[in-house]
Amino acid sequence: MRLLFPLVALTLALAGCPRGGARQDGPPDVRYGVDPCDRCQMIVSEERFAAAYLTPSGAARRFDDLGCLTAHPQERAELVAEVWVHDHETRAWLRGRDAWLVRAPDLITPMGTGLVAVSDEARARALVARAGGELLTFEAFMALGPRAWPARGEAP
C-alpha cells in the first residue's frame, strides 16, 4: 500500500494537467503526422484541412477534417469557445467566424466531406465556381454535425 500511494498521487497530479498545449489566445499547436484527430483518430497530416476548437476550459480538440470538427461537439455534447480552421490555399490559421466555408463534394478532403475554408469571399466564390458546392455560414457549418457526411449508402 505504501508503494501504491505515490503512484496514485502521481495519477491524480497528471490527471489535473491540461493536454495539448492549448493557448487561450490562439490556435493550438498541431503536430502534423503525429497528433490523432480527436474524433476519428486518424492522424492529422495535412495542414490545409486541419482544424481545431477550444473548449471554455481551454482544452484543445484537433481534427483532420472540418467535418470531424463540426461533428465532434454534437456527438460529445461539448461546448465550443473558439473554432480555428486553415485557409485551404494559404494554410494560414483563421478564426472560424472569420472564415468563408465551402462545401464542395468533389474536393477530396481527409475524411471525404469536401469541407474547406478560405479567408475571403472572392476566393470562396471562385472555389465554388471551380469545384461546385456551396458557401456555408459559420452557423450553418457548425450545425452540420455528423450530417457533414452523407447518409450511409448514399453518394455525397
Binding site: 500500500m1 508503494l3 501504491l4 503512484l7 496514485v8 502521481l10 495519477t11 497528471l14 490527471a15 494537467c17
Partner: peptide
C-alpha cells in the same frame, strides 16, 4: 489506472506498475 490516465502508460513494465499489482493483490 492507465486507461483512465494514459500518461501512466509511461510506467508500464516498471517496478511502479508491479508495485501497483502487488498492492492490488495484497489489498
Amino acid at each position: 489506472l492507465a486507461q483512465r490516465h494514459p500518461e501512466l502508460k509511461l510506467f508500464v513494465y516498471t517496478p511502479a506498475a508491479n508495485a501497483v499489482e502487488l498492492a492490488a493483490r495484497a489489498v
